[in-house]
Amino acid sequence: MMDKKLKAVVCGAGFGQFYMEALSRMKDRIELVGLVAKGSEKSIKCAEVYEIPLFTSKDQIPEDIDIAFVILRSAMLGGAANEYTEFFFNRGVHVLQEFPIHPDDVRNNFRKARKNAVCFHVGDFYLHLPQIRKFTEYVKRLNEICPPSHIQMSLAAAVSMPALMMLRDMLPSANKMELKCVSDNETPFQVILGNIDGVPVTAEIHNEVNTDDPDSAMYLLQAFNVIYETGRLSLQDPLGDIFWYPKIKSSVSRYSSGAAAREADKDSGLKDGAVSLSFYGAQAAEKGTNEIWVQAIISDIEEMLEGITDKAAYMRYSQKTMTGTAQWESFNKLIGFPKRIDGVKASPEQKDMLIERITEFITEK
């Protein structure tokens, strides 16, 4: 339990808005006392909405801050997050810094946090999204019966670390990775083959960065197919449904009559078809996607608070994160630096037309 309510600041008025909303619902444990930003119109509005002061320079930040949420781009993306993280460490402040963070910076941050007797937490709310949690739990329960035959995943390079952390949760001991890249960097997706803990893995990684609009270049976030002898468990997006697809079975004996196409399909796994195990649409309809993001962030912050009050929990977290970071570093070396692309591949008009066409498909159902 916390001995006192922690005073907090959020750095960044972009996605930091979601952290401010999360903290506004944790007032029994954390008091949001300010926003650190450059003073743009957006940041001024944020400060007004949450009724907190706006600090536009480090010397304006109060001395009695206990915890800082650094929701800025890291140095590897040309941002100032690392600079602010070190500033708060030197003040004896706990820090949550949102990923992606360069592996060297993760290691250095844990080292600096230990030196200053504070906690460092890599902000990773993806692992706390309800569909991610549920999918991981389903896989673990299936693995109690038998290991997967194969894992196939497609994801954006920017969220590859959460994907690897998911694999660490799903597999009994995902410490041994034997992977190789079998594609060049001339296509949007890099292909990785190999095995993790003896389980064959195929991964497609979207490895591009749009220099004109870095936040909108991802074609997808994460998609997983965990394949077993009787079918596959599938999650096509962190904000998507979880499906079980039975394996297609067809015995040789069924063709003996010469009229197999006219007979009842008795032994095909398709007779039941795909089964939805968790329907995201119901969650979105009830809460809205923004609400789901906020609740996942609250869960991530709660994990950090546990580490602040429980040294053993913090040691487990830091060791797990350091190991995952080392694996992520090896993974990134395989796919190389993201390919930089300029401009857009579809005009605003074409994008609107694509959405309209999809709407037509929905109404045709």
Rank of each mutant, 00 (worst) to 15 (best):
L6A: 07
L6R: 10
V9C: 01
G14M: 05
G14C: 03
G16S: 03
Q17S: 09
F18T: 03
M26R: 01
K27Q: 07
E31S: 07
E31G: 01
V33P: 04
L35N: 07
K38V: 12
V49W: 04
Y50W: 15
Y50P: 01
E51H: 13
K58P: 01
E63G: 05
E63S: 11
D64E: 11
I67R: 03
I71K: 01
N82V: 04
N82K: 06
E86L: 11
E86M: 06
F87V: 04
H94K: 09
E98D: 11
E98T: 14
D105V: 02
V106P: 00
N108A: 01
N109A: 03
N116E: 09
V118Q: 04
Y126M: 12
R141Y: 01
P148D: 04
S149L: 08
H150M: 04
L155G: 08
A157D: 06
V159Q: 10
S160K: 10
L167Y: 00
R168Y: 01
M177K: 07
K180I: 12
K180V: 11
C181W: 09
S183V: 10
L193I: 10
L193G: 02
V201K: 01
I205H: 12
H206F: 15
P214F: 11
D215V: 14
A217M: 11
D237Q: 13
D241R: 15
K247Q: 14
S257N: 00
S257E: 00
A259S: 13
K266R: 01
D267Q: 11
S268T: 15
G273T: 15
S276H: 08
L277W: 12
G281S: 07
E286A: 14
E286D: 13
G288E: 05
I292W: 07
D300T: 02
D310Y: 13
D310P: 10
A312N: 14
Y314M: 13
R316C: 08
R316K: 14
K320D: 12
T321S: 02
M322Q: 05
M322H: 01
S330Q: 09
K333G: 04
K339H: 07
G343Q: 05
K345T: 14
Q350C: 00
K351V: 14
E364R: 15
